[in-house]
Design a protein around this nucleic acid. Structure first.
Ligand SMILES: [Zn+2]
Ligand SMILES: [Zn+2]
Ligand SMILES: [Zn+2]
Ligand SMILES: [Zn+2]
Lengths: 138, 138
DNA sequence: TGAAAAGCCTGAAGTGGCTTCAGGGTCAAG
DNA sequence: CTTGACCCTGAAGCCACTTCAGGCTTTTCA
């Protein structure tokens, strides 16, 4: 199976597949005489594994750790658990941030019901005011 | 006021301030004889404006648009309203994604109560299973 | 007075996770 | 034999910064 078919059957772009190979997340495939990459079912699985982890918001570094853990079946899965706990905490924190952001954005949006002139626009006035009194403090 | 004081009084790193200048988000400051940047209160306000917009998750390109709108007080604020509406929709969508992600992560985490061997770890087994049946489809 | 320390300068490169581009080579069909 | 689909490589671009290398200016204080 060459790279185009792998791409089609996983929904991953060709360039991304080559990128994962460079990053050593996918094992180096065989080559044809014409230097085309040749993939096996094992590659399909590994690529899907990567994409599934990515869909769970894992970084490539974290995916690398998971692959390592998975391929050392004698070890314990402590690191896997820790990684997931950390990820859950991260996502929870991000959701909280975004909830606050939603409130702020909606409140700001409410300050301009119908488009006025810039001079009197509640949104721009509030943005300027916030800048002056330094509401930011991220 | 030189760059260090501006940085201290706004909480923005010196390198970031210089970066904003390169990106033409901050007006070019005066210079001393020794080529040090000299800022005015106007710069402080503009920098705070930028950071407040950034804290609302605006991109620098969007901040640029807001600054333009603000500085053309004769125009209408239609673009500002549209920008905010779009941003609100983006954040809402992201929050929904993250809620789904929270569910998935918690469910996955529940598959390994106490750290086993890798061979029998419910988390790794599920990751492998998901890869095989292609649950991903991001 | 002279040297160390603190502050500032520039341009370039690095970050992550890809995507895009330029400039080719390989292979099957007509 | 040529067209077009497919593949190759290495380099650069994206965003919003951060870091680094190497050097200049100003203040401090012994
Ligand atoms: Zn809320
Ligand atoms: Zn308005
Ligand atoms: Zn919620
Ligand atoms: Zn486990």
């Amino acid at each position: 199976m060459q790279i185009g078919e792998l791409a089609r059957s996983t929904g991953v772009k060709i360039e991304t597949i080559r990128y994962y190979e460079r990053e050593q997340l996918l094992p180096v495939p065989q080559r044809t005489d014409g230097n085309y990459r040749l993939y096996s079912p094992r590659h399909v699985e590994q690529l899907r594994f990567i994409r599934y982890c990515r869909s769970l918001d894992m970084s490539l570094e974290e995916v690398r750790l998971l692959i390592e853990a998975r391929d050392a079946p004698a070890g314990s899965c402590l690191t896997v658990n820790a990684l997931l706990d950390e990820k859950i905490a991260e996502v929870d924190a991000r959701v909280n941030e975004l909830h606050k952001l939603q409130d702020q954005l909606r409140q700001l949006r409410g300050l301009c019901q119908q488009p006025d002139e810039v001079k009197t626009c509640g949104i721009l006035m509030e943005l300027n005011r916030s800048a002056r009194i330094d509401k930011a403090q991220i």
